[in-house]
Design a protein around this nucleic acid. Structure first.
Ligand SMILES: NC(=O)c1ccc[n+]([C@@H]2O[C@H](COP(=O)([O-])OP(=O)(O)OC[C@H]3O[C@@H](n4cnc5c(N)ncnc54)[C@H](O)[C@@H]3O)[C@@H](O)[C@H]2O)c1
Ligand SMILES: NC(=O)c1ccc[n+]([C@@H]2O[C@H](COP(=O)([O-])OP(=O)(O)OC[C@H]3O[C@@H](n4cnc5c(N)ncnc54)[C@H](O)[C@@H]3O)[C@@H](O)[C@H]2O)c1
Lengths: 274, 274
DNA sequence: CCATCTTTGTGCACACGTTCACAAACGCAT
DNA sequence: ATGCGTTTGTGAACGTGTGCACAAAGATGG
């Protein structure tokens, strides 16, 4: 009598996204252990090496199956293999890099690239003065060859390091050629059809997030006088806010805000009008 | 009389982390609108430009205060100012980059760096053959000068682009010198004291995540014969698994897994022994 | 074979994040 | 003023992720 709720699809194989994002971290730590010929490792030790909580690590592994031994820990070599397999690293992934400027060059030269199943299939650029030069031993080829390269080498992953203005166009062409995963370094929101994955690496965003926290740290020491600049009007209920909004649209927005430091109220939370 | 429910941290001014991470995205879209002199924008339009859901955007903005006008939308200039202020971009953030190799060079040359309140205060390296050269008009200085630079220029953000082996050591020194936010490009888990923020940018992890999804896409077309390689023993309950584990530790792990393809059962979900 | 010690695997509660859906607020035309 | 169309701001439902705590599994030693 099967009381299994009939997983309609591949529900069983559903590894949480947060877990997937941590698997490479575990893999890195395990590889280091493997190189030191450590045979087994406990969840506590491995978690420390990966910089996560041990319960989280055990739960993550539980999605892959039960690969540990109670009282002992995990077999390092076996885990390396299982995680590699789960991440698809037991096969070779040819990658194209488009836009061989400062960043593209750095990536092409990056050794850690090839170390884990990723192989640079080609470097591509649109600029004729760049095409023909070489980076990291590979020739830079012209965009015209993109489609042929992607098809002949079965490239499914593309890296975009062009200026922001060209990113969407390059993306479209990659997708059209058959690429279904894109890593985007340009500060651009890419639009892609269903079935195509995009991940972005955005230095500027990371710095801004750091700045936010940095500012908060700085602003916590002084008692509470820091953000008196914030207009009380904007947190006030009812018609008062409407008036403020009108004012803003009428006059020069940004400057207004500074002028509006009327009463320096405390940190009253935003109240809704009923 | 604080009746705050013992927010472990600063709960009062608590803008959710997920929201903070999106603010730079909104800011970028808003800046583009501002340059086109668009006066106001609706949550729907802005959300599309930033690549998010409009309800999410509105909720994000609601944490900052009520800056919109119903029936109209948001005043672009005003929002730019408010978000900039919230992120701490109305002030200047001097930044040091440590490790001027391939990547460090690329970052030093990156224009988008300075565009938003971030200023490269210094480039630092330990290698005497690199020190003295220049990148993007700035001289590369020796690590010995780190402390003096951080202190005199009030640097609170550091970027690490050294090889992985040097990252923790460099990090410790940055922290010791007074840096409290670190952006780490080296594939290393950094340990820092409380009060120091670390964000990492890890190309290798991003690629591995893409590979995972790529593999999944590829594996969905063929009926189900792909992963018969996975041992059924590992999903079986009770003592069977124990035996499997023992075997693994005894013999050569990774190779074993391939040999274990005994019976090719279906996709029965992992069952627990009561 | 039993006792004891270690460590996994997971149930559970809670925190955080996302999305829907809609009343209230606003501009504008009449 | 009043009504109408538009758009915000948010309550509430839902989904995802995290961390505690502990029973049970296995190792180990007598
Ligand atoms: N350099 C960095 O450290 C850094 C940091 C963060 C983000 N970024 C982003 O990464 C991207 C590249 O940065 P960069 O500093 O290497 O820029 P870059 O100008 O040095 O290089 C861009 C390259 O792309 C090529 N290119 C332009 N249009 C193209 C097209 N349509 N098709 C193919 N190739 C094209 C150019 O010929 C050039 O070689 C930019 O979007 C930048 O904002 C760079
Ligand atoms: N190049 C890439 O595209 C890329 C991509 C992803 C990650 N990374 C990572 O970024 C880091 C830098 O990569 P790279 O290609 O620029 O390496 P690189 O070897 O070209 O440059 C490293 C620089 O750090 C300097 N350095 C070494 N030890 C130092 C120390 N103790 N203090 C100060 N400086 C020191 C070296 O002199 C060198 O100039 C590496 O950890 C790499 O794994 C690089």
């Amino acid at each position: 009598m099967r009381r299994t709720p009939v997983g309609r699809q591949t529900r069983a194989r559903g590894i949480p996204e947060a877990t997937v994002a941590r698997l490479p971290l575990y893999l890195r730590a395990l590889t280091a252990l493997s190189e030191r010929s450590v045979p087994t490792v406990s969840s506590e030790e491995l978690a420390a090496a990966a910089g996560v909580n041990s319960a989280k690590l055990r739960k993550d592994f539980s999605y892959l199956g039960s690969y540990g031994t109670r009282g002992v820990g995990y077999d390092v070599e076996y885990l390396v293999y299982q995680i590699s397999r789960e991440l698809g690293l037991t096969q070779d992934w040819p990658v194209v890099i488009v836009g061989i400027g400062n960043l593209g060059h750095a990536l092409a030269n990056y050794g850690g690239f090839a170390s884990r199943g990723f192989r640079v299939a080609a470097l591509l650029d649109a600029d004729p003065t760049v095409v023909g030069s070489s980076a990291a031993g590979l020739p830079v080829r012209h965009m015209d060859e993109l489609e042929a390269i992607v098809e002949s080498q079965h490239v499914s992953i593309g890296v975009i390091t062009t200026p922001p203005g060209a990113a969407q166009q390059v993306c479209d062409r990659l997708v059209e050629a058959g690429v279904t995963s894109i890593l985007n370094f340009a500060p651009t929101v890419l639009t892609v059809p269903d079935g195509v994955d995009v991940r972005k690496v955005d230095l500027s965003i990371e710095l801004q997030i750091l700045a936010f926290h940095e500012q908060r740290k700085a602003g916590e020491e002084p008692d509470q006088g820091r953000s008196a600049e914030e207009s009380v009007l904007d947190r006030a209920p009812g018609p008062v806010r409407a008036a403020a909004a009108k004012l803003r649209r009428a006059a020069g927005a940004a400057k207004d805000a500074k002028a509006e430091k009327a009463e320096s109220d405390s940190d009253r939370p935003a109240v809704m009008p009923a």
